[in-house]
Design a protein around this nucleic acid. Sequence first.
RNA 1: GGGUUGGUAGCUCAACGGUAGAGCAGUUGCCUUUUAAGCAAUUGGUUCUGGGUUCGAAUCCCAGCCAGCCCA
Length: 497
Amino acid sequence: MSSEIPAETTHDQHAVRRRKLAELRAAGVDPFRAEFEPTHFSGEALKAHVEGRDNEVPVAVAGRLVTIRDMGKSQFAKVLDQQGEIQLYVKKDVVGEDAYAAFRKLDLGDIIGARGALFKTKTGEITVRVASFALVAKALRPLPEKWHGLADPELVYRQRYLDLVVNRESRRRLLLRSRVVSSIRRFLEARQFIEVETPVLQTVAGGAAAKPFTTHHKALGVDFYLRISLELHLKRMLVAGIDRVFEIGRIFRNEGISRKHNPEFTMLELYQAYSSHRGMMALVREMLLEVCREVIGTDRVLHPASGQTIDFGGAWREVSYKDLVRAETGDPGWFGRGKAEHIAAAEKMGLKVEPGWEDFEVTAEVFSKRIEPGLIQPTFVLNLPRELNPLAKISREDPATLDVFELCIGGMEIAPAYSEQNDPDVQREMFERQAGGEPQSIDHDFLLALEHGMPPAGGMGVGIDRLCMLLTGAESIRDVILFPQLRPAEAKPAGGA
RNA sequence: GGGUUGGUAGCUCAACGGUAGAGCAGUUGCCUUUUAAGCAAUUGGUUCUGGGUUCGAAUCCCAGCCAGCCCA
């Protein structure tokens, strides 16, 4: 295919690079098979330099060539690896004429390895004085522009690998995510929680009210749903005697895509026997504070959309759902009124009320559209109406409400938690009431498990994506998901010249 | 699903009814401690797709595709 490239082509960067590759191959070099073993990541190499002892510490580093400054008989270049960038200094009379000429033929984006000793340039940058180098993978496509990076949001999402190569902020955000998850694991493991994995393919998609994705298993001849929650299987683990259990897993909801929603997202769910929603309040506060300190080194993080600084270290507000609704509607008698009055009031606030809604759904709409977005500082919303969740214990003091909280931070629901319903008869009744005309949506196997006895427990879910949004100041969930869902692009075969 | 904004060189962006440009990247030179290196020269376009209006369309109109934002 390289023979199809006119020798004089200089404008088509893909063709030029293919020609360079063909020349290398013709000279007996296969850059995709070169062997190179780095001794240091860039960050480690920078730390390995000893002040005042230039050219004494040998290192071998490897990564993608992201800048080249050609000075004639010497060059400065930077390679990028998972820890960041390190500068290389390539001097003609050090590497020799042939190697120097080969270095000049490299392209931005090529993956190379370099050996040499560390020194500090006169501007104070720790740099590898290159003694030898190897091209270990040729890049046939050019990198995006070095200063503005990749700005087109569509390309950022579709070609995230390029975004990560050129956009520092994206790297920071997506690397931070892995530290959030590992920090959560450490926190829970230190408290004797056991991590498990439960099925994604389920015959009943329970544990939440959401539209599921469906799929089909050929060998069994059975349709399955992708899970919409982790809850019902983790509770089976409580029945099994695993008293503190958690899962960090992907769940799938066949609903709209927005700044706060991706059809697949990551949830932490944890269950602690002999605890309650009150216990969960203490646990989640401790957990988020520790994650925050470990990952970003402070209790306070800017929330760009509101301009406020979220303070994880302060006292977290506790307020009842009813009080919030009464305050927002300016109507102390709100919960004494009927559906028609609620609808009229909601519409007056500019909210759209769907025809089929129950009364409690009208109020829930007021909460989610008018109240939740204003809860920027960590806020436990307590005493939610019992219609909102069939899996929580009904409050003894006020049987119209549940022993639950909804933790809101940054105007988003971050973590719901309950005192878990463990009475199989009440659970069955709640399921039946919620299922309405769809009895097939009841997980009878779960009810059977409950009849074997589940210890009283506190349980909680934490939206990992949203937590990462808070900690990174991201305004869209897409900014903390590596490959967010998009409509498939027109398939274009790569390659060729 | 509705509204709205956008889609122009590999990338980031101009051009607002009259010859499609710049910066970076590329190519060719010069330069042995640079920092978005510098200097000189230079290549590169199905203006998302398809229709329409017009003497003339990147630009105006219609439809479609993709994306962002707002709403549902």
